[in-house]
Design a protein around this nucleic acid. Structure first.
Length: 926
DNA sequence: GGATGCCCTTA
DNA sequence: GTAAGGGCATCCG
């Protein structure tokens, strides 16, 4: 069967231009769109189609312009950087031997439509390659659609139905109803793909919908009726023609010989090194290497088109797996023997809950070689479930393996499994590798680290989703109810894929010594430590919180009554929308702040700004503060007490924040209020049990100290060496007076500058923070940099590093990739620059406290009271603070040792200082 | 019931 | 101006 590939050149050029960063070659010529198109073409040529064409729009009007003068009228003019890439693109296409079609007076879409049908009728297999969904209307036998950018492929009515909810022959009607903003074709207001598909399912066709329009209820029905008159025109505009007169027929479109010399020149000129290598080395056509300069920070496009790192992958790593359900003793013995013989094995547990502190074990899976894995069901209890091996006996049989520190184990987010197994009596040792953390260390800032994403990205493998076996939403069933065959496919795959991912990710880490050490020396040792901190949990005085809730309720009610009185009517104080209408429409108060979407904001800043003109804003702020405390904290925390332990157990997410910080959820114990008086009271409910105390140890000004270390600025280093109040010292420098004469206001301004520096601020932000003019803020900043030139140089160095390498690093070598550092969108770019400034400081602080946690945990390990209980437990981490619960008698030893361990967790050019406090509750200890 | 917008809490 | 998680309203399916 001969094949014809029809490439929608214009569509790809535009999409690649917008999807890729503004790459340039050595001469500074823009190459981003070109790069995307060239890789797309090489992908197609790899399939060696016999016939191929690259179709582009000719200049000049077409029949659609005649039909509808506004057609495509709101398209912005082509950017110069894109226009400059068209000629080179045509040269490369020609040199590749691909026929180019450019038909005057006919849009590329119609050329493609006509050729596709002619070819299909002539018996060719046609593939239309485009980023434009409108082409779905052409899908039929022998005509398939492929989008190399999204990686999607539609070759049948069924695929169209799956994507759009209608048949291919209904696509035109669907598009007519939806309209097309890009082409300036207005559809039915508020009618998107879902609504349009629903109507077409009901009425069969556009004509059916038009005829039945009167029966459609609601606002959307009105919208439909308002649009009725233009729907027939829409249909003409969105229909791709299949009968235009063309000079060429499919037979004229044979792929020609490529001009290697011309290609060599072009590739070299535009810096397409990988393509060049393929020309010279004769490597597989279409290969795209991940290491190609520019691609690493190119991000999405290449990864989506052809998963970049899949190239050169051992085929065994992307093949389907063979999975075994272990239901008998001999099978179990077999697998235990395999695990014993393996250097390292992957494991995964299945449970009936996402909360590792409540989950019951339902099954275990293991893998020792790619493609081979087993699932041992232990707790499937649906009616008719096959007999399973007894859970406790299986765990006993596995115990020697799981608890052997010399037996290396591998998982994906294994902290969860460590919890589950510990709660079933197995304390796993030798947990050596975690694919989530491998990915986190390798590509923080550019990738997700969940298994499904990793499998797709690194193996080109589409995993079975949890929803596929257990359903979703209200209909979701617990894993114990999932049929064992389905469970095996899902669960064994998890272990299998984990092992395969490790085979791909591990060598990448080994190749980068600094990343490897972040992974080996910081992240992996932290896993069991975090598991212990989470398992320890914190004791909460639920009664105290309930009292506070009641008190807050009373005050909220009072505020609500006052607000109703002031407004002259009742309204929902929680609704920004109603508030907006009331304050800005009815009461005509000025809307001084806008939300990101452009609506008037009712946030604190906006309300403060109008608080002198009306009493209501102040009352709303009062209500908001109280409501936040109650709903988020005093009501919620008592609900989160684990019934088994009587304590609250947060989850720390180790791959959560791109800078390397931890995040905390369920509940988040890293944002417990402290600034306001009533908020701080919540901390009195974080208590120590009788005979124990809470001890809080926090790093003082750690990020500024890191800034001093990184910038090596003499004045800053000196201030820290002398142990000065850093904000006061900054004020003294900036305002040119002795420390003792710095006013409270000057110190406040200096503090704002110091914080602003850590966040990569500009004059605008500082002005806002201090409530001063931009010019004045700029003067402060200039003054600051004149006193601390080392800091100014460091900031510029960091930006430059981010631009050159596409990433920045912490003191310990952790990297954060900055995808948007070359964005042509100035605000995105500025944002990436601020992140670049902040990440080394925030990230180094995160590295330091992580190292400290491992050391402190190790020190605490054998500290026990006479009764054998731990003398002290690490119970919380809040970015620069560690909280412990300790025997009263052990507190002095803890205070002697822990702050020192924390301070010694890094050797910087300035001392690290750790403050500590002790109390019956967290508020007192702080 | 799920996604999104807005607002607010922390370091 | 950096980094997070989460509650409530609202819109849509």
């Amino acid at each position: 069967m001969t094949r014809l590939v029809l490439i929608d050149g214009s569509s790809y050029l535009y999409r690649a231009f917008h999807a890729l960063p503004p790459l340039t070659n050595a001469a500074g010529e823009p190459t981003g769109a070109l790069f995307g198109v060239v890789n797309m073409l090489r992908g197609h040529l790899k399939e060696k189609p016999e016939h191929i064409a690259f179709v582009v729009d000719a200049s000049g009007p077409t029949f659609r312009d005649a039909l509808y003068p506004e057609y495509k009228a709101n398209r912005p003019p082509m950017p110069d950087e894109l226009r400059a890439q068209i000629e080179p693109m045509m040269e490369i296409v020609a040199a590749l031997g691909i026929p180019i079609l450019r038909e005057p007076g006919v849009e590329a879409d119609d050329v493609i439509g006509t050729l596709a049908l002619q070819a299909a009728e002539g018996g060719l297999e046609v593939t239309i390659s485009t980023g434009d969904k409108d082409f779905a209307q052409l899908v039929r036998p022998r005509v398939a659609l492929v989008n190399t950018m999204s990686g999607s492929r539609m070759e049948s009515d069924a695929a169209v139905m799956e994507k759009f909810g209608v048949r291919a022959d209904q696509i035109v009607d669907l598009l007519s109803l939806m309209g097309d903003a890009i082409d300036n074709v207005p559809g039915v207001e508020k009618c998107g793909p879902k609504t349009a598909a629903k109507w077409l399912a009901e009425y069969g066709s556009l004509d059916g919908v038009i005829a039945g329009a009167d029966a459609i209820k609601g606002k959307i029905g009105d919208n439909l009726r308002a649009a009725l008159a233009r729907l027939p025109l829409n249909r003409e505009l969105v229909t791709i023609k299949t009968d235009v007169a063309l000079a060429q027929s499919p037979a004229d479109l044979a792929l020609r010989e490529r001009d290697v010399e011309a290609l060599r020149g072009l590739y070299a000129r535009y810096g397409f090194n990988q393509a060049l290598k393929e020309l010279d080395g004769g490597a597989a056509a279409g290969a795209i290497a991940e290491k190609e300069p520019g691609v690493a920070r190119g991000g999405g496009f290449v990864a989506a088109a052809v998963p970049a790192s899949v190239e050169g992958l051992d085929p065994a790593l992307s093949a389907p797996g063979e999975y075994e359900t272990v239901l008998t003793d001999p099978q179990l013995s077999d697998w235990i023997a395999k695990l014993q013989a393996a250097d390292e094995f992957a494991f995964d547990s299945e449970t009936d809950s996402l909360d590792p502190m409540r989950a019951n074990l339902v099954g275990l899976s293991f893998s020792v070689e790619p493609g081979k894995a087993c699932y041992i069901p232990l707790g499937h209890d649906y009616p008719g479930a096959p007999g399973q091996l007894p859970r406790d006996a299986v765990l006993e049989a596995l115990r020697p393996l799981l608890q052997d520190p010399a037996k290396k184990k591998l998982g994906q987010h294994g902290k969860y499994d460590l919890h589950v197994l510990r709660r079933h009596g197995i304390v796993v040792a030798g947990y050596a590798d975690d694919t989530m953390l491998e990915s986190f260390v390798l590509s923080a800032g550019i990738a997700r680290h969940d298994m499904d994403s990793l499998a797709k990205r690194h193996l080109g493998y589409e995993t079975i989703k949890y929803e596929d076996v257990a359903g979703k939403g209200a209909k979701q069933i617990p894993f114990s109810q999932v049929a064992i065959d389905d469970a095996t496919r899902y669960a064994a795959e998890d272990a299998d894929i984990t092992l395969r991912l490790h085979r791909v990710l591990s060598p990448k880490l080994e190749a980068e010594p600094s990343l490897l050490s972040v992974y080996r020396d910081i992240e992996m040792p932290l896993v069991p430590v975090l598991a212990r901190v989470e398992a320890n949990g914190v004791m909460i005085d639920a009664e105290e919180l309930r009292r506070q809730s009641a008190e807050l309720s009373r005050r909220m009610l009072a505020a609500q009554q006052k607000a109703t009185e002031l407004a002259g009517r009742s309204f929902n104080l929680d609704s920004p929308k109603q508030l907006c209408a009331l304050l800005f429409d009815e009461l005509k108060l000025p809307a001084l702040v806008k939300t990101p979407s452009g609506a008037p904001s009712t946030n604190e800043e906006a309300l403060e700004a109008i608080a002198d003109q009306h009493e209501l804003p102040r009352v709303i702020l009062e209500y908001r503060g109280l409501a936040k405390l109650r709903s988020t904290y005093t009501d919620k925390l008592p609900e989160m007490i684990n019934p088994d332990t009587g304590r609250v157990h947060t989850s720390y997410h180790q791959a959560g924040a791109a800078t390397g910080r931890l995040s905390s959820s369920d509940p988040n114990l890293q944002n417990i209020p402290i600034r306001s008086e009533e908020g701080r009271r919540i901390r009195t409910a974080f208590v120590a049990p009788p005979g124990r105390r809470l001890v809080a140890c926090d790093y003082s000004q750690i990020e500024l100290r890191i800034m001093a270390h990184l910038s090596e600025d003499p004045a800053l280093l000196r201030a820290f060496a002398e142990g000065a109040d850093i904000h006061r010292a900054t004020a003294a420098e900036v305002f040119g007076k002795p420390m003792a004469e710095v006013s409270a206001n000057e110190r406040r301004a200096a503090k704002a500058i110091n914080f602003g520096l850590i966040y990569g601020m500009g004059a605008f932000g500082l002005a806002r923070q201090l409530g001063i003019g931009r010019g004045e803020a700029q003067d402060y900043i200039a003054l600051y940099f004149s006193r601390y030139p080392g800091v100014r140089d460091y900031m510029e160095r960091t930006r430059q590093q981010a631009r050159d390498a596409g990433y920045v690093e912490t003191v310990f070598g952790r990297r954060l990739a900055l995808d948007y550092i070359h964005s042509r969108n100035a605000s995105q770019r500025a944002s990436a620059e601020r992140a670049a400034i902040n990440a080394p400081m925030q990230g180094t602080a995160a590295d330091i406290i992580k190292r400290a946690m491992v050391r402190v945990d190790d020190w605490l390990a054998d500290k026990r009271s006479a009764s054998g209980e731990s003398s002290a437990l690490m119970i919380l981490q809040v970015h620069d603070e560690l909280v412990f619960e300790a025997d009263e008698a052990f507190v002095p030893e803890l205070l002697e040792r822990v702050p020192a361990l924390m301070a010694d967790a890094a050797q910087l050019r300035v001392p690290l200082v750790v403050d500590s406090g002790v109390g019956m509750n967290w508020e007192e200890a702080h």
